[in-house]
Design a protein around this nucleic acid. Structure first.
Lengths: 326, 326
DNA sequence: CTGAAAGCGCTTACAG
DNA sequence: CTGAAAGCGCTTACAG
């Protein structure tokens, strides 16, 4: 069943049916009623594939993250889905596993699908496909990490400032040997968090000691192991996955937290309160950030803004047991 | 740029370009080469919206879960995305929050979008839209919970058997007062897990004591609180979210695990090993289940199977510290 | 306010 | 093996 069937039943043209369906205001009241009744009676649903082709776009939003199983991104995706649902948009989920090739491939897919916009936590911030999307008029909102193309919007956190804050707190509590389990230096958030740590150490006249953990569980474990041979009294871990690894390393060495080593973790996953002792964390306002990203995208879609917008959110230090100064 | 531009450049008809793109084998070698070169030179990408309309379907798979933030579903979605990506399909993410109305709405969207198939963890197993999808020839694979329409495939776990196993283990260890924090009785998995618990208790001549926690964190907390006034020596919790709640309840009452109360949890989220003591869990083989669901769907899409298929997986009891018999 | 007509960019049955 | 033509089911500029 298609529009012409509805039109026939309502005694109008398909064009009028289309207008009613799309809320075009110029339709006469009587016609509108007849059309709505015919739709009702026939149980008609418009064919989205046809309207997509005709309009040259799909009512869909692409979300590209490196790892949906990282609670940080799960939360973000959740918030985006929520906002999209409310507006009647669909969400296309794209997982890149931090592989530039997958990012490339997915961004091409999103361009091919003529999505309304893309929220992208880039694995490869200079991928040419980002510019291709923007060329096509598809708005891109960078999330967590910025992208090279200046036309993209961006929602980030003050990584350096946050970690600096955490380090200062430990320093103020008297710690001098503070280690840092960093992400990949080649990833923006990794570099910035490291920089924040180093800045705090240097300004206090202390020597920074950091090891790269690649933002993953196993990497965090190995990095923590290596740092533990340095006789540290405190440890800052650069994201929630590496924190899982670090906790494992601390346990296998029978290191007590916070007595032997005080701990502060970046990210505030739901399990931070479940472990013993509960973790002191640097929490990102993920929900607010995701809502902001969606808002930016909607501003672009509606055409009410054409200049790039960048928002930088602050971390919140949530002091719990693991840092020993609760 | 469209197909006719490629055709012109290659000196063939658009039909031939289409055939090359779709791997129709009857194209002459020379023509195929010319077409591929033209595509390359022009950087042509076919318009998916057009081919979707023409073929009356989108190369997309719908995944409908009640809560993407529940690690159980996150894992499932991840596995589905992975399999879909390998085959060049997209994934449309649908979150129902356990609301029948959202399920209804999303299933209509998926029908409108003419997806290739749907993997559905139903909030409302008898929703009429499930049958509508099947009427349209869109395969539906029920995940975790079955649906009313017998034409759907299903991948489930032996909920009753798993929980029974867990209960027996506690009974064998000498426990007599064992409580159960159940999900919603109205949800299939909730009812089955409860039944498994009750069966084990009754066959041992013990009295079952259960409270419903609605599968959510807060519900689990309150259910556990109520059960703790019953002088139990052991507790089984019906899913990972309620386990978070139960752990909180145990802590606020200063109950020691496993000395005061032994604990077994259904689901094996990644944080089960991080808490103190590590949790004894009933692990579902989520990844294998998701792969199986995808396989079922692909069998339907390719048309190699038309009879419904149901697979029931077994739980695995992972004994760690929390049950006191490690 | 409304309809007839063109067209979005592919795919495919048909004829050769 | 290949092309011309029809058609997927909408939307919208145009004319009235």
């Amino acid at each position: 069943m298609k529009m012409r069937d509805v039109a026939r039943r309502a005694g109008v043209s398909p064009a009028t049916v289309s207008r009613v369906l799309n809320g075009v205001p110029t339709v006469g009241e009587e016609h509108r009623r007849r059309v709505l009744r015919a739709i009702e009676e026939l149980g008609y649903r418009p064919n989205r594939l046809a309207s997509n082709l005709r309009r040259r776009k799909a009512e869909t939003i692409g979300v590209v993250v490196s790892d949906i199983e990282n609670p940080h991104f799960t939360q973000m995706v959740r918030a985006v889905e929520d906002a999209a649902y409310r507006r009647g948009y669909r969400v296309l989920l794209c997982n890149t596993d931090e592989e530039p090739e997958k990012q490339r491939s997915y961004l091409e897919v999103l361009a091919d699908e003529r999505v309304l916009g893309v929220i992208l936590s880039p694995s490869d911030p200079r991928g040419a496909e980002i510019s291709r999307l923007l060329d096509l008029g598809i708005p891109v909102v960078a999330f967590d990490r910025t992208v090279a193309d200046p036309r993209a919007d961006a929602v980030t956190v003050d990584n350096a400032g946050g970690v600096r804050l955490a380090a200062r707190r430990l320093i103020a509590a008297g710690h001098e040997k503070i280690g840092f389990v960093g992400g990949s230096r080649s990833i923006e958030t990794g570099a910035e968090r490291l920089a924040g740590y180093e800045a705090a150490m240097l300004e206090a006249g202390l020597e920074p000691v950091s090891v790269e953990g690649g933002f993953r569980i196993e990497g965090g474990r190995e990095a923590a192991r290596r740092l533990l041979s340095e006789e540290l009294t405190a440890l800052i871990v650069g994201n929630n996955l590496m924190t899982i690894g670090a906790l494992k390393a601390l346990r296998e060495r029978r290191v007590r937290v916070p007595n032997d080593v005080a701990l502060v973790a970046v990210d505030d996953p739901f399990w931070a309160e479940l472990v013993e002792p509960p973790l002191t964390t640097l929490a990102q306002p993920v929900r607010r950030m995701a809502d902001c990203a969606m808002e930016m995208m909607l501003e672009r879609i509606s055409g009410e803004r054409s200049e790039p917008r960048r928002e930088i959110f602050g971390f919140e230090l949530r002091v719990r047991g693991s840092c020993g100064t609760a």
